[in-house]
């Protein structure tokens, strides 16, 4: 296809999308209006299920099956990364040189690590009450561990991070979500139905299965992020040879 034909094709496609978008925009309800048909129903439903955070009620109760899909996307993405970034036969692994870190920075990281971890767990545990939940809290907890690499040393991180254990945690979290869903099925209603008592509104134990599903997601996400970053860190710091590094110069010359 010639360059001109490709440009024409792009123009036609672009104009088509623009027209569709314009039609969609003119059909939208006004910005900041008072009519929220879906929102009203979701909030009413959330309160009926004693879940103070309506978003969590939608994510883990009213639309819990959609969340299973999202969780599986993360799971599959991390699995793909692990396969792509594995150490290939023409690569070898060397421990990175230790790095000097300013002592106050190191002390700060060691003190903040448990604080950050605690904040992550707090966000997971309060998902049914206040903004947050398994995903956000899991990411925060996983980031907390990496303060060890950022401000101490990669060796220190490797000590507390047997990647295989976190991979198991990742899979266990995913499995726990499905098992909780199946429990709803066994309790006599539907897959991922809320089968536990709803508890008192605005207490930690409210929401029935919502806190449990949040915990499952939290474990899955934290494990997934740790495994993901472990592959990135190994590639960037330890693995030598193969495609990257030396041959880069040849590539550049080849391109010129």
């Amino acid at each position: 296809m010639s360059k001109k034909a490709r440009l024409w094709l792009l123009a036609v496609g672009g104009i088509g999308v623009a027209v569709l978008l314009a039609f969609a925009v003119f059909d939208l309800p006004g910005f900041g209006g008072t009519s929220h048909p879906y929102g009203d129903r979701a909030v009413r439903s959330a309160l009926a299920r004693h879940t103070a955070n309506a978003i969590s009620s939608v994510n883990f109760d009213q639309r819990a099956f959609d969340t299973l899909g999202e969780e599986s996307i993360l799971f599959a993405a991390v699995l793909g990364t692990v396969v792509l970034l594995r150490e290939t036969r023409d690569e070898h692994s060397e421990p990175p040189e230790p790095v000097h870190v300013d002592p106050p920075v190191r002390r700060y990281a060691l003190i903040t690590l448990p604080v950050t971890l605690l904040i992550g767990l707090y966000v997971i545990a309060h998902g049914q009450l206040s903004p947050g939940g398994g995903f956000q809290g899991g990411v925060i907890a996983a980031t907390a561990l990496h303060l060890l690499y950022i401000a101490v040393d990669y060796k220190a991180l490797e000590h507390i991070r047997p990647a295989a254990a976190y991979a198991v945690a990742d899979a266990a979290g995913e499995a726990a979500y499905v098992l909780l869903g199946t429990a709803g099925l066994l309790a006599g209603s539907a897959f991922l139905a809320n089968f536990l008592p709803y508890g008192t509104l605005n207490t930690l134990s409210s929401g029935g299965t919502v806190p449990l599903l949040n915990a499952a997601i939290g474990v899955e996400v934290a494990g997934a992020i740790v495994v993901l970053l472990a592959r990135f860190l190994d590639q960037a710091l330890e693995i030598e040879g193969g495609g990257a590094g030396g041959p880069r110069r040849h590539d550049e010359e080849g391109r010129r």
């Binding site: 990175p96 040189e97 990135f232 960037a236 330890e238 990257a244 590094g245 030396g246 880069r248």
Partner: peptide, 14 residues
Amino acid sequence: LLAVRKVRGRGRHD
């Protein structure tokens, strides 16, 4: 930044 470091190929020299 880890990806950038890997692509630039100065792995373990940190």
